[in-house]
């Protein structure tokens, strides 16, 4: 039977924990707001670069570019995005589980891992997958420079033919409560993407590899317009393709960052609520014990008094 003091200690300890989780929740909420702004302000650029890339693609003679080249898939690279720290619910373990399933399913294609985030790096290395590279402490300070660095690394491996396809596993930020786990193909760039973004998922299997859907221009206007070019269009096009990869990597980094903070916020919110429930429960038990003690004392007094008068 715990004494009153034990209960009080218990309540104090839970309260302390609750204070920590509450603080972490507020921190996560603030970071989430910033990350969300990042996601939103990156969107216009991504949209415009896709449009310019598209209109350039429709006008070049041949859309040959090292990053568009398709070849027999013998080695693949899987880019796995996790956080660097835990206490964010199932965020990291979801990604890791999906990634390691994916790796096992593609075992015949000699997968290598590009780990972004400490959590994924640790687990996947322990599982014995070869690491092609690692980037840690990215989440929380995502900027375009780091996206460029990662994109350059991926492009280099691809152009040196050390890998034949690149996939990415990450959490997409849907809203504060929902993160969607995504597995996407990053390279070779799907020719359908150069046509229209909406057809990205559907168009892949049937589309002829190196031919672009020329009449899928996003708006009627830019389709009719003939552009003047300051530089040869082929040159512009071949510069635009890596930019597009950078902007995709940047988008994925931002999505994952926002999703991580959202997951952390939700996790800390429910931890705070669980602590409150626990405090209520322990308080109730404490009061019961206190009442029992008082009742016992009263009985003793009454009993004592009765025996004294008799």
């Amino acid at each position: 039977m715990p004494t009153l003091l034990d209960y009080r200690r218990r309540i104090r300890s839970v309260k302390n924990t609750q204070q920590i989780t509450r603080a972490m929740k507020f921190v996560a909420a603030a970071k989430l707001r910033r990350a969300q702004e990042g996601v939103f302000s990156a969107r216009p650029y991504a949209k415009e670069i896709l449009r310019v890339l598209h209109s350039a693609a429709a006008r070049v003679e041949s859309t040959v570019h090292p990053l568009l080249e398709r070849r027999a898939v013998k080695r693949i690279l899987v880019v796995v995005l996790t956080g660097d720290r835990s206490l964010c619910g199932a965020f990291n373990s979801n990604v890791i589980r999906r990634a390691s399933h994916f790796l096992r399913d593609h075992r015949t294609e000699n997968p290598q891992v590009l780990a972004i985030g400490k959590k994924g790096r640790g687990v996947l290395r322990r599982e014995g997958w070869p690491l092609a590279g690692e980037y840690v402490n990215v989440s929380g300070n995502v900027d375009f420079a780091i996206a460029k660095e990662i994109a350059a690394k991926i492009a280099e491996l691809y152009e040196k033919r050390e890998i034949d396809a690149v996939y990415t596993v990450y959490n997409e930020f849907k809203n504060v409560l929902v993160q969607r786990l995504c597995t996407e193909k990053l390279l070779p760039i799907d020719p359908a993407i150069l046509g229209e973004r909406g057809s990205q998922e559907k168009a892949a299997p049937g589309a002829p590899a190196d031919m672009l859907p020329r009449d899928l221009a996003p708006s009627g206007q830019s389709r009719l317009v003939e552009y003047l070019y300051e530089e040869p269009i082929g040159e512009i096009f071949s510069h635009l393709v890596p930019r597009y990869l950078q902007s995709e990597v940047f988008r994925i980094l931002l999505e994952s960052e926002a999703a991580e903070w959202a997951a952390r916020m939700t996790a800390m919110d429910s931890a705070t609520r669980n602590a409150a429930e626990l405090i209520d429960k322990v308080t109730l038990e404490m009061n019961k014990t206190r009442q029992a003690a008082i009742t016992k004392e009263l009985i003793e007094i009454v009993g004592g008094a009765a025996s004294a008068t008799s």
């Binding site: 310019v52 350039a56 552009y227 003047l228 070019y229 300051e230 530089e231 512009i236």
Partner: peptide, 12 residues
């Protein structure tokens, strides 16, 4: 220099 009505152009 670009004034309104410029011919369509893409440049680096």
């Amino acid at each position: 220099g670009v004034l309104p009505g410029h011919a369509p152009l893409i440049t680096e």
